[in-house]
Design a protein around this nucleic acid. Structure first.
Length: 270
DNA sequence: ACCGGAGCCTGTTAGC
DNA sequence: TGCTAACAGGCTCCGG
């Protein structure tokens, strides 16, 4: 479900209701959600701690606690976070709950149960494998060029590789390649400098658009308040198989690449 | 390095 | 309508 823009939207929505709050309890009904720490240890280590900041790295949410620990959550395909009153009726897909000092709760709902929750002392250590943040100033055209030239893979699966560049998922990879006019099967080391500059601009453009539109509610994603984002109304190719390209009218094609559905315009992308 | 496939889960949709 | 297979905004592991 969520990629960089969706996770960023969730982070922004959770700051107001959560920053400054103290965690008073933690419950879990699906132990495999918890990474590396048992529930009892998790409870002991978060009980009484307050949330001082909420940030994002790639598709991970990072909740900073006042003792230096970080609560890290990955929503994977179907995760959803919401802050609700503690008397809100239970939901069968809510697997982890953190009670707060104001009678409210942070609830992690995750239908497919792929999501993960961890508690770490050192965030850099836990997330150090990730590639550059595509919207940070450090992610320049030169950085992208240098990384692309070392690789021979098809571009689409490379963009999904979180160690190559962090935060891009299936929607924004397809959208970025369309806006750059580059075919998803093109080999990384065959791009011209102009194409690399176009790809760099397209990556930043589609991610920024996704954030401005508060995410793409194409399948199950909704914001913490339950409302839909708006990016689904601005996609050019993703899940538009068989429909006409907005640019040239050609029929949008769908192929499998790296095991993932890939959508592109056969006329606009080379 | 890179590729494909399986696995993790449940729910929805497409096809017969 | 009913059954089955395919598919889903992610990621990891394993073998080749």
């Amino acid at each position: 479900m969520p990629e960089l823009p969706e996770v960023e939207t969730v982070v922004r929505a959770l700051r107001r209701p959560l920053i400054g709050r103290t965690i008073t309890e933690m419950r879990n009904y699906w132990p495999r959600h918890l990474v590396g720490v048992t529930l009892s240890e998790f409870q002991r280590r978060v009980h009484g701690r307050s949330i001082t900041a909420i940030n994002r790295r790639a598709k991970y949410l990072i909740f900073s606690l006042n003792d230096g620990q970080s609560l890290i959550i990955h929503l994977k395909m179907s995760g959803h976070l919401a802050v609700v009153d503690q008397d809100t009726p239970p939901d069968k897909h809510v697997h982890t709950i953190w009670g707060l000092d104001n009678g409210r709760e942070l609830r992690f709902r995750d239908t497919r149960k792929f999501g993960r929750v961890q508690l770490v002392e050192n965030t850099m250590e836990a997330l150090g494998h990730l590639g550059p943040e595509p919207l940070e100033p450090a992610f320049t055209v030169e950085v992208l060029l240098e990384r692309l030239q070392k690789r021979k893979r098809a571009l689409k699966p490379l963009l999904l590789d979180q160690t190559f560049v962090a935060g891009i998922g299936n929607i924004y990879a397809d959208e970025a390649l369309f806006h750059a006019g580059i075919h998803p099967e093109r080999r990384a080391n065959t791009l011209t400098p102009t194409e690399i500059a176009d790809l760099h601009a397209a990556i930043q453009k589609v991610l920024q658009m996704g954030i401005e539109r508060e995410g793409a509610s194409i399948q199950t994603y909704v914001k913490p308040d339950g409302k839909k984002g708006d990016m689904q109304n601005a996609v050019a190719v993703f899940r538009r198989t068989g429909a006409p390209c907005y640019n040239c009218g050609s029929v949008i094609q769908r192929i499998k690449l790296g095991g993932r559905s890939t959508h592109f315009c056969p006329t606009c992308q080379h």
